[in-house]
């Protein structure tokens, strides 16, 4: 029986995130992300009234959607999903029209000011091919990020998803993200009507 294809994804357990931003910094350093763009970042909200206040952290990155809108709108097929399910950009093909950046509902793409093409998280595919974890996962001090093969039921990520209730961002859009959140309280964010 042929081996099942890999399908990489990530779980972010927000219970363990302390908002240290090491993911943002390590991503910038690993991938040479320019000053005004972000491949990985952490949104923060505060809920409650003094003295009962809680700060929530929502680490963000490209969701590597199975039905990625950025791929379907790219007029030159520069955006594509590779064999391992990672959404990538062929930067030699990209014409810098910005349509994929507008089409991404997660604001995960930006225009690389140096290269003048679209850029985004690649799940550090160069590290993954070398058998390493993405930089943000490797450097997460709270071990809030788990990266692995969603098609392997024995992988740590699959086990974590099976044991915990997970959510994705904007499931209503039907993009089928491969980045999952544990305990993210996504629907309680103020801009989504949360109080």
């Amino acid at each position: 029986m042929p081996a099942k294809k890999k399908r990489y994804g990530m779980v972010i357990d927000t219970r363990k995130c302390v908002g240290c931003m090491s993911c943002t910094i390590s991503c910038k350093m690993e991938n040479g992300v320019p000053f005004d763009g972000f491949r990985a970042w952490v949104n923060m909200t505060e809920r409650g009234e003094f003295p009962k206040v809680k700060r929530n952290f929502i680490p963000r990155l490209c969701n590597h959607c199975d039905d990625a809108p950025c791929v379907s709108v790219c007029p030159v097929k520069a955006s594509y999903i590779d064999d391992d399910g990672i959404v990538l950009i062929d930067q030699n093909k990209c014409i810098g029209c910005g349509y994929c950046i507008s089409a991404c509902p997660y604001s995960a793409r930006y225009l690389h000011e140096g290269l003048q093409v679209a850029d985004k998280c690649t799940f550090c595919t160069h590290r993954v091919k070398a058998g390493l974890e993405p930089a943000c996962v490797h450097n997460c001090m709270g071990k809030a990020r788990i990266f692995g093969d969603l098609n392997d039921p024995q992988s740590e990520i699959s086990q974590h998803i099976a044991r915990n209730g997970v959510q994705t961002l904007r499931p209503d859009l039907g993009t089928n993200p491969k980045v999952f959140y544990v305990d993210a309280e996504l629907n309680n964010l103020p801009n989504k009507g949360g109080k």
Binding site: N43, G48, R60, I101, N188, K195
Partner: peptide
């Protein structure tokens, strides 16, 4: 209970 965003990153859109 109050909720407010204190740090929100949005990558800028190149369509000007």
């Amino acid at each position: 209970m109050n909720a407010q965003e204190i740090y929100l990153v949005v990558n800028s859109n190149p369509w000007q």
